[in-house]
Write a protein that binds this DNA or RNA. Sequence first.
DNA 1: GTAACGATTCCACTTTTCGGAATGGTTTGT
DNA 2: ACAAACCATTCCGAAAAGTGGAATCGTTAC
Lengths: 310, 310
Amino acid sequence: MRGYDLDLLRYLQVLIEEESVSAAARRLKTSEPAMSRHLAKLRVVFADPILVQSGRRMTASSFAAGILARVQEVVRAADGLIETQALADLANMEPSFTIRANDLIVASLGLPLLLALRKDCPKCEVIFAPEVDDPASDPLRQDSIDLYIGATDVMKPEIRRQTLFRDRMRGLVRKDHPILDQPVTPETMVRYEYISVSRRRRARGPIDWALRDHHGLTRRIAMVVPNYHAMVESMKDTDLILAVPGVVLEHISMEALGLAAFEFPLSLPYVEAFQAWHPRRDTDPVHRWLRETLFRVSRQVYQSARVVCP
Amino acid sequence: MRGYDLDLLRYLQVLIEEESVSAAARRLKTSEPAMSRHLAKLRVVFADPILVQSGRRMTASSFAAGILARVQEVVRAADGLIETQALADLANMEPSFTIRANDLIVASLGLPLLLALRKDCPKCEVIFAPEVDDPASDPLRQDSIDLYIGATDVMKPEIRRQTLFRDRMRGLVRKDHPILDQPVTPETMVRYEYISVSRRRRARGPIDWALRDHHGLTRRIAMVVPNYHAMVESMKDTDLILAVPGVVLEHISMEALGLAAFEFPLSLPYVEAFQAWHPRRDTDPVHRWLRETLFRVSRQVYQSARVVCP
DNA sequence: GTAACGATTCCACTTTTCGGAATGGTTTGT
DNA sequence: ACAAACCATTCCGAAAAGTGGAATCGTTAC
């Protein structure tokens, strides 16, 4: 009597969490028939149906629901056994990371991150996924991206997040913009039109609220664009103002583009850039190393940006 | 990145505990090449040699030795997940138990134990292994017996044991033996010769020491036999005396064999009958049920024996 | 240097696992 | 009531993985 195949616990955990054979199969990147067979084996080993029909769906049996926490703990402890060893062999690994981030994050952090990762893991690959309109929680849940970096998304409750840095918005304008002729005031701010960057038509934010609440002023939004780079290169011929996080200014060629930046004379909340990941990655040592590297790199980039633009 | 095959942990535990590929293979009832391949996989997963050459032997690497307790705990917790379910399906199981016990234990407890087991598990099988000369610890370690029942063996330190009952030795003689003509005394005890039951020529024991220490007397051993039944049927024509545990007297047909029993007039230590098993069975729910059943049955047999022969 | 013992690798065979296709089960919408 | 939609299970041929015996390798004892 040797004992049941312990690897079945991986399937058991995912089947109970998803309460669906097909969802569990998708999550572990295998087929439904294969996952259905694992379930059949689990049913024999545990002498319990594990998942039971509930109308058109399946639901966890009471036994399965009762042991889920213990199963998670066993798997977590088992994966923790290799954690200290896994990073010892990074040099020979070829992991691929899919990260979703907006164009300015990619421009400001993409290369420093890759260089830092490559120091430990020369063969790793970083894929920046294009931004699309769905909230980042969905692909994190579906495991189609490994990590999200951004500031604007609202995350689902189980998604893990870590703040990378907090920054202020600054105004970006053409170099000889008239607003620069004297110190910027709320009044001069609303004298010109703005570009708003949004993928979901949220054209108004903290700047609008500060102007309205503290000065009774309203700025005009001339246009809404989906990413920053769409406008940075062409705005030098306009009087438009673009609000950008300060940290990214270092990565914009101000002189070559004929641009300049100024600070908003408003008490604005900080923009909080964070990284987010699905909890299934919590015990993945390589993924943790990725997150820790990103954290370190973004802090370094942020510090050097503050030195350049005090 | 799905994670390593958790079933490898079973091999990891045994390999570290045994510090030998062939011993681990024997213990898990597989071949050396198969176990060597499991070790090779573990070496890849953990990026560690796990077992390293130490002269002619292997020894656990420091990493492996360091995680052994955690591995044991993970495997124990994983097996514990099915414990509450395992006994729910006893009725459909066909387990086979190999138990080593002397002939009188088999005679007195064999049938009651099987009947009790069959109440819960109608298809179970009990094999009483023949007694051989090696200490019981060895086959328990080698997993060739599931359980030992006896009183005389010294157990290795890791072997688990549980006392079943404590009993006194009694004298068994032919029915009209002259020693029964009057109350037995130490002096009459040494007037006749004895049969000693031993597989390892330990012909002298507590009876000899009590006679010598308290009465300055010595009994004569006429012969040494390997089991009780060898002599029980033929001693009715002799004046020989056989010392047996009281509990088994109920299972000897005294009238049919023309025998009788008497109490020794000595302050003898109790004989302690116990069951012993290897700790690998500690978390085996079916094995625990076997032990608990045996404990219950032996207590019942012992109680009824005390009623019959006060 | 040779024999003994255990670990590893090779190899042919067996067993298990895989995913696509087919089938079965349940609910929803018309 | 029936058809469509969705998910779970079973069937089937192919691929992958596992097995143990034989051969080879590595180390020590005599």
